[in-house]
Design a protein around this nucleic acid. Structure first.
Length: 562
RNA sequence: UGGGCUGUCGCCAAGCGGUAAGGCAACGGACUUUGACUCCGUCACUCGUAGGUUCGAAUCCUGCCAGCCCAGCCA
């Protein structure tokens, strides 16, 4: 079997969904796109940062093209100057590239096609398929009819020449915003409101981030999108479910535009997740009100926020792949995203030892001036990642929760009389502790067994507990930040903005102790924090004193009472 | 109320007339120099519901029920 065949077989094993069924039907002999290369597009409006919900759409658009050895374009859908800004364009490109998808040299703007769209509109008027309407927004609303009554349009039968003249003058900027619109002449009685003579063009004297003040009229999504797709030779225009009702209009525009390419629109359900808010409007409010530090605040569900929180592109892509594609309005559990990260980090993350809540351990029978070096693997799952050297001496920092005076049944870490393995070094027997006047443990004492170097037991005795630790002589003091989603489960869509903030989404742990080797590791690496989960450096603020604990990965209590 | 769409395990999701894949979560257990990871086991006699067609239905037909989307000069 050739590599290519193998690849195809593998990808087919991974997913199969209704979109593929349509595509396969289309590219099969005799199909709508027989013999053509599958061509998709991802068309964000540059009015905000991309979030995990967009990742699903990006994945579907790009991975579907990849699966059929086709192409996927990246296009800024910038047909509404009142909402868009260049600031977002770069961020969008960066996030998609970060996910590992490439649009090659096919980066476009809808605004590139304004001229062609205008020509097509003129032609529509000439064919009697569009007319200039002078209804105000209110009149339009009043005339729209309702579920059972058809719409009314007083300007519908305006002579072609008159519409042509008016439309040209609209373009020339003769009329003020809202004075008139260009409308398609379709069906005022349609049960589908999108077909009740939809607006094709509106007047706006606003400055456009790319075309400046060249245009006074801007095309509506329903008119612009099919033309953009057709001009780019898109075969499959994949979008979310709320556009199902727009498909007849999409097809109407394609048909009457008389363009060569006739793309097929296919809709899928957008991503919903518990514990996360995907509303761009709300995310923007958080940023504008400085409730978060920016779109890339690690508590945000944006791709840039998730990136700073330690998420990797592979984890997010795997997630998108495994949630599948369907037309069911579903809510994916956040734990599934966490799983995908954990799964990837377990393979790729470089390990390092750290103590979040330190208490000192003194090995009383260990020579005062002795320092021993040990080699420890960077990643037990991947020996090729090599080892690093750590030191061990008389005093170490251990986790406060790794010692107790009164062990519950099943507890097998430090308690007086119990032996514990300090990872990679020795087996240490707990001999007691020292407390302050309030009864808080301030030091733990133990005696090591020099015959157990490397953590082995020559006599074969079993030692169940193995703990992580950091040499007190050279430990780095660190502030570790635990990040979680900004939003709570509580009714994210209806609550007030401030009510949605989860105060526990950022916890700062001071006085954490991290092993000295950290300064030599790449600041973009993820690290596994023993027994607790993973943490990583914040790629925006990667000083050695600032580690970001990846809260997304299991903070569940690892010790279960039995 | 008109139009469109959807209902398979707590959550995703295969299935396309031949007798319910898989993943997440959960729960047992094994293993373990991370109580992690890994592994192994349990977890839908049933596919929104009521009928019908069929030797046979989650899959076809009909009715009903539930949910989502649409009356922006937003996308």
């Amino acid at each position: 079997m050739s590599e290519e065949m193998k690849h195809i077989e593998e990808t087919e094993d991974v997913w199969s969904n209704f979109i593929h069924d349509f595509i396969e039907e289309d590219i099969a002999p005799g199909g709508r796109f027989a013999g053509m290369k599958v061509h998709t597009r991802f068309p964000p409006e540059p009015n905000g940062y991309l979030h995990i919900g967009h990742a699903k759409a990006i994945y579907i658009d790009f991975a579907t093209a990849e699966k059929y050895n086709g192409l996927c374009n990246l296009r800024m859908d910038d047909t509404n100057p009142t909402k868009e800004d260049v600031e977002y364009v770069k961020a969008i490109q960066e996030d998609i590239a970060w996910l590992g998808f490439s649009w090659g040299d096919r980066f476009y703007y809808a605004s590139d096609y304004f001229g062609k769209m205008y020509e097509i509109a003129v032609n529509l008027i000439k064919k009697g398929l569009a007319y200039v309407c002078e209804c105000t927004a209110e009149e339009m609303r009043e005339n729209r009819g309702d579920l059972t009554n058809p719409a009314i349009s007083p300007y519908r039968d305006r002579p072609i020449e008159e519409s042509l003249d008016l439309f040209k003058r609209m373009k020339a900027g003769e009329f003020s915003d809202g004075a008139m619109t260009l409308r398609a002449k379709i069906d005022l009685a349609s049960g589908n409101f999108n077909m009740r003579d939809p607006v094709l063009y509106r007047i706006s004297h606003m400055h456009h981030h790319r075309t400046g003040n060249e245009w006074y009229i801007y095309p509506m999504y329903d008119y612009a999108h099919p033309i953009e797709d057709a001009l780019e030779g898109i075969t499959h225009s994949l979008c979310s479910l709320e556009f199902e009702d727009h498909r007849p209009l999409y097809e109407w525009v394609i048909l009457h535009s008389e363009l060569q390419c006739q793309p097929r629109q296919i809709e899928f359900a957008r991503l919903n997740m518990n514990h996360m808010v995907m509303s761009k409007r709300k995310l923007r409010l958080l940023v504008e009100n400085n409730i978060v530090s920016g779109w890339d605040d690690p508590r945000m569900p944006t791709l840039s926020g998730l990136r700073r929180r330690g998420y990797t592109p592979i984890a997010i892509r795997n997630f998108c792949e495994r949630i599948g594609v369907s037309k069911v309005n579903s809510v994916v559990e956040y734990s599934f995203l966490e799983h995908c990260l954990r799964e990837e980090l377990n393979i790729s993350a470089q390990r390092v030892m750290a103590v979040l809540d330190p208490v000192k351990l003194i090995v009383t029978n260990y020579p005062k001036d002795l320092v021993e070096e040990f080699e420890i693997e960077n990643n037990p799952n991947r020996p090729e990642d090599g080892t690093r050297t750590i030191t061990f001496s008389r005093e170490s920092w251990i986790e406060r929760s790794d010692f107790t005076e009164e062990p519950v049944k099943g507890y097998f870490r430090f308690f007086p009389g119990n032996e514990v393995r300090m990872k990679t070094t020795y087996i240490v027997k707990c001999t007691g502790c020292k407390k302050d006047e309030n009864g808080n443990v301030i030091e733990v004492y133990g005696e090591y067994d020099s015959a157990t170097r490397g953590g082995t037991t020559p006599d074969g005795r079993k030692v169940r507990g193995t703990i992580h630790w950091v040499d007190a002589r050279n430990a780095l003091n660190a502030e570790i930040r635990l990040y979680d989603n900004l939003f709570t489960e509580a009714d994210p869509e209806s609550g007030e903005l401030l009510d949605l903030i989860n105060e526990k989404s950022l916890q700062v742990l001071e006085n954490c102790k991290v092993e000295a080797s950290v300064k030599e590791l790449d600041s973009k690496s993820s690290f596994q924090f023993m027994r607790q989960g993973y943490f990583c450096f914040d790629s925006q603020d990667s000083t050695q004193e600032h580690l970001v604990f990846n809260r997304t990965v299991s903070l569940k209590d690892s010790f279960k009472k039995k």
